[in-house]
Every structure is written in C-alpha cells, then in structure tokens.
C-alpha cells in the first residue's frame, strides 16, 4: 500500500517535472526566437550577398559611406558589428581612427585586421577627416595642399 502510494507520488512528480520543463523550454525557445528576429531587423551585419553596389553622387547607397579606395573593406569589417552611421557621423585623423579600432579590439571583440588595417585607416582618415566638416563652413577656407618650392629665377 505504502509502496503503491510512493510509486504514484513519484509518477506525479515526474509528470509535473516534464510539464514544467516543457513550459520553461517553450519560453526559452520563444524568447530566443524573438530576440533573434529583433536582432536581424535592427543590428545584424548586412549579409555579404545582400550588399548592393549602387553608388550615387559618390556615396555607397546602402551604407551611406563615401565611395573610395577601401570602401569594401570598411563595409566588410566595420558594418559586421555596427551600422555605417557610426562611421559616417564621426570625424578623426588617422591616429584618432586607430585609437577607436584599438578600443574596439580591446573591449568589443573586434578581430585583428591584419594588413587590411592600414587600408581601412587610410580610407577613414581620408573621407572622415576632422578638417572636412570645419572647412566646408568657411566662405574661403585656408589654402591647402600647398606644394612649397624655392623660387629664385625672377
């Protein structure tokens, strides 16, 4: 009698356990699915095969990045984790961009960029340089790119 009671008791506990596991499992599954969907919509890197190559007025349409040498590397490496807007709204010289990359490598799991780093830095320093924003607002900006030479013959 006592043995049967125990058996029934165990069966009930076992069934309840299964039931709870199913419930918990469903919620875990459900929330993971939702998270994944949300992630895809807002934050996921653009799958490489979906990158459009359309350039309009010197700008890569899909990302808003300036068209230039190194554009493809920036798209591939930078927009894998964050939107291109994080690049386009910032201005820095080469050293400044290098500091950002080092910070991302130390704290944000950015990988070693290898020999592509130099090309990426050149692109960023050229098209997202600090002087661009400032000089554009001058009515006559300071003369730039002066090639100095000795003038003797007059």
């Amino acid at each position: 009698m006592r043995k049967r009671l125990n058996t029934t008791y165990y069966l009930v506990i076992f069934a309840l356990g299964i039931f709870m596991l199913v419930i918990i499992g469903y919620y875990v599954y459900d929330s993971s699915v939702q998270e994944k969907e949300g992630f895809i919509e807002a934050d996921a890197p653009i799958p490489l095969e979906e990158i459009e190559n359309r350039i309009e007025n010197g700008v890569h349409v899909q990302t808003g990045l300036v068209d230039g040498e190194g554009l493809n590397l920036v798209i591939a490496n930078c927009t894998a984790c964050h939107s291109a807007q994080l690049v386009t709204q910032n201005k820095a010289d080469k050293e400044g961009w290098k500091n950002m990359i080092v910070w991302m490598q130390q704290t944000q799991n950015l990988w070693d960029l290898g020999d592509q780093e130099e090309k990426i830095l050149n692109y960023l320093a050229k098209y997202y340089a600090p002087e661009q924003a400032a000089s554009a607002t001058f009515r006559r900006p300071p003369l730039k790119d002066i090639e100095w030479y000795d003038l003797t013959e007059q």
Binding site: L143, I146, E147, W148, Y149, D150, L151, T152, Q154
Partner: peptide, 15 residues
C-alpha cells in the same frame, strides 16, 4: 605667375 607655394629669400622682390 608664380605658381602658388613659391618660397623666396628675404628682401627680394616677387614678380
């Protein structure tokens, strides 16, 4: 003339 960027010696006239 001259092309921008000319460096000349002090106390010389520039055409």
């Amino acid at each position: 003339y001259p092309k921008s960027g000319a460096m000349i010696k002090d106390k010389t006239l520039l055409s």
